[in-house]
Simulated scan of single mutants.
Amino acid sequence: MALSTIGFDADDTLWHNERFFHLTQARFEALLSAHAEPAHLHERLLQAERRNVGAYGFGVKGFTLSMIETAIEVSSGRVPATVIGEILAAGREMLAHPIELMPKARAAVEALSGRFRLVLVTKGDLLDQERKLAQSGLGDLFDAVEIVSDKTAETYTRVFARHGTGAEEAMMIGNSLKSDILPMLAAGGWAVHVPHELTWALEHAPRPEGHPRFAELMDLGGLESVITRIG
């Protein structure tokens, strides 16, 4: 089948994102150092994020609320209000951080724009994702933008039916095996994994070894060769 539509993930595929979560978590560990060791705090925070993602969704706001919840839990409710204020301030800083594009991201999107329907498919907080797309300078290169609550096979089936000729004639490009790759393959499409050095623990998943519609690249500069192989 001919490839008609190409979807791009946003965070840590087109621009850096996870590094800001790591920096904020280090700040969080310093703030709570009197109550918990870093490794224990990390595990408690991850447990809170896993519990809360269904209610708060993905992104900075859910992360901030999970940090506050964890701070209350590990301190047995004794965490000072000043520390809660610091956590809230850290969350606000994350929501204002400048956008830094990944290497070769602009060139890759520009090379495909006009040749294929391009769709940005990202999950997270609506306002934050809209801000990052606007600051990236890539918005005009996309034919459509979908900010979704989660990425599943049903999500991709719906998105590529709406903006293309169906998932079977579409490709999804992203850094997350769990969100960008496995559900796209399940929907019948092609999927290109571009690993990032930092990946949130809840996004880990096994590689689909040997799948005929799966490819992996070290950076976005190799996309053209993958598309050429598909024909």
Rank of each mutant, 00 (worst) to 15 (best):
V53L: 15
D150C: 04
Q47S: 15
R50Y: 09
E224I: 06
T24P: 03
E203K: 12
I99S: 03
F160I: 00
G221K: 08
S113M: 07
E197V: 05
M94N: 10
E224C: 02
E43C: 10
L112E: 03
E29C: 10
A34M: 07
P98W: 02
R158Y: 05
G221I: 02
A2T: 14
P98M: 05
H16N: 06
I72T: 12
E154M: 01
P195Q: 04
S33D: 15
P195S: 00
P98V: 06
R78Q: 03
L23W: 02
V53W: 14
R78V: 01
H196W: 11
T165Q: 06
L127I: 09
I72H: 12
E29A: 14
E100H: 11
L120H: 01
L14Q: 01
L112A: 11
D150I: 08
V192E: 07
L182A: 06
S149A: 15
T152C: 07
Y156P: 03
T5Q: 03
R213S: 04
E29H: 13
W200H: 14
Q47V: 14
E110L: 09
T82L: 05
V60A: 13
I181F: 02
G210R: 10
T152M: 08
G210L: 09
A30D: 11
A191G: 08
P98Y: 03
